[in-house]
Computed example of a mutant assay.
Amino acid sequence: MTTDQPVLMPPLPDMVIEPLVRAALAEDLGTYGDITTRTVIPAGTRYQASIRAREAGVASGLQLAAIAFRLIDPDLRLRVLIPDGSAFAVGDVLAEIEGEAASILSAERVALNFAGRLSGIATQTAAFVAETRGTSTRITCTRKTTPGLRIVEKQAVLHGGGFNHRFSLSDAILIKDNHIAAAGGIRAVLRAVKARASHMIRTEIEVDRLDQLAEVLDEGGADVVLLDNMTTPMLRDAVAMAMGRIVLEASGTMRLDRIAEVAATGVDYISVGALTHSSRTLDLGLDF
């Protein structure tokens, strides 16, 4: 397979994401393969097909779609016209595939599932990012991802112009309210971090009240404070209290219609779980 794709940002290595595509194809092909195609399409039938947008959005998942076609038939020729991270309009052709019709049809659903799902995440992320224009606030995702698909869903957030939060529990220390309750309070958890954590690990702590933020600022030991479910005036007060001494992340009830006013408070990051857990799959189709 040949792929002509201008690179807007470094893609993930194929070897990292190929197992995801391989598992999806195995699920779809079942125990006996594509019996419809094998029954009705004569061997040697060749066609050219297009992945076409039925609504506007931002592309993501075309790398996975290409892998799906390649795994089914390495002789298929695929040309990506609108690469991951690029905006497209209704009717635009994202990619063209040429070769055995049976191979194209057998890979079609898995390819479109990945491209539609991930383009939906990229598109929703781009909408949130647009609400932060004119500020220095960044939109970031969370770990509220589809089990097994975190790496590609977080890549889709990058394609939409967002940023990534932790990929796993081992990436950084994130002290939530339950950690604080179990450990005996804010000062107790921060002192434990200062005593035990590696100097290579960053620490974030969650607070939902301004007096808790004051306690964190007084104690020290955190790099980032997660301001959870605070009102916009509270977020503004938190920024004033911190005076740039610590990174501030707003989280909780971060709907699209609220992002502009939250970004205007001066917080550094807004984390949005909905980017990955509630984005709608974009409508893409494959046409012969």
Rank of each mutant, 00 (worst) to 15 (best):
T2I: 15
Q5I: 15
P6D: 03
P13V: 12
I17D: 01
A24S: 13
T31G: 09
T31W: 13
V40H: 06
Y47E: 14
A53I: 10
E55T: 07
G57S: 08
G61Q: 11
L64E: 13
R70I: 02
R70N: 10
L76Q: 03
L78N: 00
R79E: 15
D84S: 08
V93A: 04
A95K: 12
I97Y: 05
A101Y: 11
S103P: 05
L105F: 14
A107N: 06
E108I: 06
R109D: 02
A111F: 12
L112P: 02
L112E: 02
G116Q: 12
Q124I: 03
F128L: 07
E131W: 04
T137K: 06
T142E: 04
R143G: 01
T145D: 02
P147Q: 06
L149S: 01
I151V: 15
E153D: 04
Q155D: 11
V157N: 05
G160A: 10
G162P: 05
S168P: 07
S168N: 09
I173H: 12
I173P: 01
K194I: 09
H199A: 11
R202D: 00
T203A: 14
E204T: 08
E206D: 01
L213V: 07
E215H: 03
L217K: 09
D218C: 06
D218W: 10
V225T: 06
L226Q: 01
T231F: 01
M234E: 15
D237Y: 09
A238Q: 08
V239I: 14
A240S: 14
M243C: 10
M243G: 00
R245M: 05
V247Q: 08
A250H: 02
R255G: 07
I259L: 07
E261Y: 03
I270L: 12
T276W: 09
S279R: 12
R280D: 00
L282T: 12
F288K: 14
